[in-house]
Amino acid sequence: MHDTLEAFAIQLIDLSHPEPDGSRRLIPERELCARLDVSRGALRERLSQLEYIGVLSRRQGHGTYLQAPGPDVIRTYFTTMRALGFLDSTEIAEAREMLETVVAVQAARRATAADAERLRALVDEMVACTAAGDHDAATEADLAFHAGLFRIVDNPVFTMVHTGLAYALQQAMHERRARAIAAETPDADGRTETDTIHYPVVDAIAANDPDAARDAIRRHFEIHSLITLDTAEEAPA
């Protein structure tokens, strides 16, 4: 049996049978022990490790299966890193900006008219909720907007990282958005730039214009950073 958990998982894939849902059913433990030349105790310890990270599931009465893991492990990693002080809101925001710049460009290349309309509806919801003073709902619409970009791109790697970051990102977004709203003066229609800066992103995606999408998402982050930076500098006074 290989030393690394990754190599062990690959060994198990070779000793399993494909299922229609994409998972793979393992052969019985007795056969696994014989094929891998390990004790049942050692095998079960490794299987438990894979189960813990979501790669393996035991279905009562059916058997043991290898499956694609969910984002729980990555989410736990980022959440714990933040709680321990090894990751702060600034670093999360920086990573988010770099990642979403790439994602916005790809979304512009792949988006349908329906995708763009869903994004526009979320910006409309942001605007309406902020004007009504429902900032929690506005933040949820904001988070849904950015998650929508990843949904359009539909790349498992980006989706996994974004979903894993979701909890830490949600906390950071609430903090930054609260500072931005506090710093801004709404226009005559009660709209804030924190919300309306999303419209150019939608327009670029609706036009399937990657360059405009890149410029719009960068402008979105620049405006948001300027607003929150000004608020942070004024706070001590």
Rank of each mutant, 00 (worst) to 15 (best):
D124Y: 05
T192P: 02
E45V: 14
A188P: 06
L5A: 13
D230M: 08
Q60N: 04
R82D: 10
H146G: 00
N208H: 12
H174T: 13
G148T: 07
P236S: 01
E31P: 02
A180Y: 05
A147L: 09
A168M: 02
P28C: 10
R46G: 09
S16W: 01
A212R: 13
Q171G: 15
A108R: 05
A216G: 10
D211W: 06
F8P: 00
T185E: 12
D215L: 14
E51H: 05
D142M: 12
E222R: 13
R75H: 09
Q106H: 11
V105A: 14
V123R: 01
I227Y: 02
R75S: 15
M160E: 13
L87R: 02
Q60R: 14
A107I: 01
L229H: 13
T112D: 09
N155H: 13
T112V: 08
A206T: 04
G190M: 10
D195Y: 12
V38K: 07
R75A: 15
V202Y: 09
I27F: 11
L165D: 00
T159A: 15
R120K: 12
I53M: 13
T159S: 14
Q170L: 06
I13L: 15
N155Y: 07
G148N: 07
D37Q: 15
A137F: 11
H62L: 13
T194D: 11
R109P: 01
Q60L: 08
A68F: 12
